[in-house]
Each structure stands twice: as structure tokens, then as C-alpha cells.
Simulated scan of single mutants.
Amino acid sequence: MRIIDSETVKSVLYPGMEIKNYKELCSLLDEKQKTGEAKQIQLGNWQLYFSYRKQGHKFIIEEIFDIPKEKVDGRAQGNHSLFTKDIADNILRAICSGVAEKTNAGTKWIKIVGLANDNYGARKDIPELRSCDTLKPTLNDFYYYGAGAAVKSYLQSAFNYFEKNNLASVSREYIGISRFNEEELEELEMKYDEESDAVIPLTGQELIELYKEKGYSAIEELKEKYFMSFEEYLFRQPFNEDSADLTIKQYSEEEYLKLKKDVADKYKLDLKTIKGREKLFIGMLCQEKLRTLYEAITVVPNRDNVPSSYCSITKKEYEEYQKTLNHKIYEHLSLMTEKRYEKNYEKWQQSIQEELSHMKLKIGTPKPHMTKAYRDGYLFAESVNLQNRMKVMDALIKI
């Protein structure tokens, strides 16, 4: 739905103004004429900016709103609009008071507003998760529990809210930080060529002996070491975090989306899966010879529509706003995590029982571990137990 500029509305309409018909009102607002349901949505959107009454075909303007009204979302509670205004307010408070810069990576915005703590997005060991045997302490694992994806959706809803209500403009660009300068790239390419030429492939019999002695993992290590592409080789090289030689690439949203599509098509990746998305990200870094690639989101408040009190908030006061929102988010996501676990566990048990019933007719009374449901991953609902899931909530969300 097209966003109307509040100032445009104020410049072309005034209370008591009579407009001949719908066509003329569209022309004044520079809006396309619509029909059916699309027209009803458009009329509802206009009423966020001004009120009117109908007299036959005529529109009579009653009031022009100084600040556009918030669009009411009537969907079931638990959707992405649940915390939208709280998040939007925290972003405006942070920028206007100087607590945060107007440009940040998405993950940093999540931390700034209070949606998660500093562990969120960290590629490092998280002490609180060491006792979770079936978890690796990285952000990607958190997607299994829905919360990682949820907080991103909440943040995006807040950005949409800004533009719909003329509170701020939101722009994006994608920043790629190169791993190496040109001289380093040339040196590494020469080293890669030398190592590749020196490799003597193992014979079939030698591979069999290696498999018997050290297992399949040893063969995989060989493949990784000797048969990787130069891009993969680069991706595995250590880099100096403090190097002054690292360069920055900038991509527009169109360029970034094209890069994603090209890499996904090249490797035939299933982006509906976590593994597919991880491979896509690594593939993009390899192809562009980058060490990291992130989305930089810039929020520029429309200060005419932002409460003046937001500009005088102290850092200590802002921390209270963070904690208040964080508590609401934590309680909601904890409840959703419990419900999701119960649903998955019930589905797993049901699938096993169905297969046991079918198998019983053929082989007597089988054991649960003999079923396809058990083998194919429903066990995840039990092995990653609720206690571990709640530990993840504590480690990554709670401030």
C-alpha cells in the first residue's frame, strides 16, 4: 500500500473542503483510482490522515490530523504488530536523545531497542549454553526455537510503522568488508596453486585403508584440504581484525538481491532451510572475497512528528525503556517456546504411534526406534528438551 506524505495532505486539503467525487480526491492526493477491495483499503488508509463524510458522491473533509493515526491491525494476538509501537518508540528515543547512531546493522538495532542482549548474534562461546549438550552457542541455532526469526520480524514491523505514519524514513545498504587487500590476494593465490600442485591424490585402496583406520571424517578432511576451490580456501584463512588494509564494498538492495539469487542458483540452495541460508551466506562471502557482509539500516526521524520529550532522555532513563520492552518480549517468547515444544513433542509421538500401528501388522510389536519418524528427526523434539530451550531464551534474550 502506498504511503501518503502527511505534509502533502495538509497542503491540498482543509477542514470543510468539498470535493466533487472520488476521482477528484485521487487527483489531489496523487493517488491511483482503485476498485473493489483495493479501493476500500485505500479509503481506510486515507482516514489515518484525515476524516471525511460522504454526501452522495461528494467528499466533505472534516479534520486533518497533525500526526497520522496508527493503523489498527486486527489479526490474532501474537503477530508481528504486537510490540511494534514500543519498538518504534525506543528507536526514536535512542536516536533523538543521542543514545544511538542513526545507522546500525540489524542485529545492533535489535540490541539497542531491548529485543535481545549482547549474546544475540555472537559467534563466540556463550557460557550459559555450555551445559546444553545438543546446542551449539551460535545465533543460527536459535532459529530452531523461533525467537531469532521473531525479533527480526518485530524490528521490521517497527520500520514499516515509521514510514506508514510519517515518523521516520528508513533506508538500507549492504556493507561487505573484504578479508584481504590485492597484494595479499595475489600471495594467497600463489600459495594455493603451489599447495594444489603438490597434492598427490590417494588411490582407491589408500582411501579404503584410511576409512578403516580413521573413519569417514578423515576422508572429508582430505577433500576439504585438497579439493576446495580458491574461494573456499580464502574463506578458511585467518584474518587480522585490526588490519588497516581491509576494504569495504557497498551494495544497493537491488545488487544485494541479485547477488543472493546468483549464489543460490549456482549452488541450487534451498533457502527455506537453515542449512540452505547458512550456505548461501558463506557462498556470498566466498564469491565476493569478503570476511563479512551485513545490512546497514539508517533511520532518520521526522522530528516534527516525534514527541519533543524523546530528545531529552538520559542514558539511564533509556535503559529503563530497554528493560521494560525486554521483559515483555521475554515473557511472550518464553510462552511461545513452551507451546512450540509441546506441539512438536506431541507431533513426534503421534507420528511414531501411527507407524508402530502399521508395523505391528507385519512384524509383531516393534520398538519406537525402528520407526521412520524416530530416525528422521522427530527425536529433536525430545533431545533438545524444554529446559535447554529456556536456557537459550535466558542466554540470548534476557537483559
Rank of each mutant, 00 (worst) to 15 (best):
E342W: 06
K289G: 13
E295D: 09
T324G: 01
R303M: 11
L285T: 13
M284H: 14
I297P: 11
V306W: 03
T324M: 09
E331C: 07
D304E: 12
R303L: 14
Q287K: 15
Y341T: 01
P301N: 09
C311K: 03
Q287M: 14
T324I: 01
Y321E: 06
I297E: 02
D304N: 08
K343F: 07
P307V: 06
K316R: 14
H332W: 08
C286D: 13
T314L: 08
I297Y: 00
E331R: 06
Q287N: 14
L293G: 02
N344K: 15
L293K: 04
V306P: 02
Y310M: 10
C311N: 07
Y341E: 05
H332F: 12
G283I: 10
A296C: 01
V300D: 12
L285W: 11
K328H: 11
S308Q: 07
S308C: 07
H327I: 09
T298W: 03
L290S: 08
Q322K: 15
N344L: 15
E331W: 01
D304Y: 00
Y345M: 10
L325S: 09
V299A: 08
I297M: 12
L290A: 07
T337H: 02
Y345N: 05
S309L: 00
Y318N: 09
K343E: 00
C311W: 03
R291S: 06
C286Q: 15
I329M: 02
I329G: 04
H332R: 12
S334R: 15
A296F: 00
K289D: 08
L293T: 06
K328P: 00
H332M: 15
L325K: 04
H332V: 02
T314A: 13
C286V: 00
D304V: 00
A296L: 05
R340M: 05
A296T: 04
Y321H: 15
S334F: 03
H332P: 01
E331S: 05
K328C: 05
E342S: 02
V306H: 04
M284A: 13
E338I: 02
E342D: 06
N344G: 11
S312M: 06
M336G: 03
H327E: 14
T337V: 08
L325G: 11
Y294L: 04
K289Q: 15
M284R: 13
N305Y: 09
C311Q: 08
E342I: 03
N302A: 00
L335K: 04
S312R: 02
Y318D: 06
K343G: 03
E342V: 02
C286S: 12
R291T: 09
K316F: 08
L335G: 04
K328N: 14
L325H: 05
L325M: 11
A296H: 07
V299I: 13
E319A: 11
Q322N: 14
K339T: 14
E320A: 07
A296K: 01
S309P: 02
K328W: 06
K316Y: 09
V300S: 13
S312Y: 04
E288P: 08
R303V: 14
E320T: 07
E319Y: 08
L335I: 02
N344E: 15
K323E: 02
T324R: 12
Q322A: 13
Y330L: 14
K343N: 10
R291Y: 12
